[in-house]
Design a protein around this nucleic acid. Structure first.
Lengths: 101, 101
DNA sequence: GAGCTTGTTCGACAATTGTCGAACAACGGT
DNA sequence: ACCGTTGTTCGACAATTGTCGAACAAGCTC
């Protein structure tokens, strides 16, 4: 089944913020921002694959990512442009691991 | 007792995001961004004063607000400049009720 | 000091959330 | 056709969170 990927305007800001307000998910988003597209399996951050799948679902349903199936793998990428257009500065502010000061 | 107000660099980004990822708290932040300083009592958004106090505590401990006591009231204000310096674009992206598109 | 106003703190409770292992599904290769 | 790989889904469980009423604290005014 095709994964559900919402229109960004349908997602409340609080949902986007909540999606980003988790350590594991934030690491995932940062990895995607740096590495571009990534297979789900490569986004391992010390959690089980069930948990990983759950987090990727949260990100997807918050409108932060898109998922493309290829073979047995699924490739995830950030919806960077759309996010930047709708919430300029949000991802930039959040993606830098250490405060820009 | 003086309320605890952390150094912004001591607060993990996820805590800031989590603080903003709630409807009531987001309304509070928006009200503060528009109206400047506000007494706790004026930040009524349909929740009890106990809940209101709780949310203000979350915002304060996330480094988003400062609280000043005056008489029986407490005045809350956004730490706008500090936030903008540390996370440029974050508040801007979040404060507009309707997407800027 | 009595009483009112303004907030905070303290349980309590329901709902949500992060986590896991196990079971399942889909695909590719041998 | 059988494995092995890659993800998803399904309970289950612990921890966190949003909410409330009630009790408490601090300050002002009469």
């Amino acid at each position: 089944m095709e994964p559900y990927e919402p229109d960004l305007t349908d997602v409340p800001v609080t949902a986007v913020l909540a999606a980003l307000a988790d350590d594991v998910r934030l690491q995932m988003v940062r990895a995607l921002a740096e590495g571009g597209e990534a297979a789900c399996g490569t986004l391992d951050f010390g959690v089980s694959k069930a948990t990983r799948s759950h987090h990727l679902k949260v990100l997807r349903e918050a409108g932060l990512t898109r998922t493309r199936a290829a073979g047995t793998s699924r490739y995830v990428r950030l919806r960077r442009d759309e996010m930047d257009q709708l919430y300029p500065g949000l991802l930039d502010a959040v993606l830098t691991p250490r405060p820009p000061a």
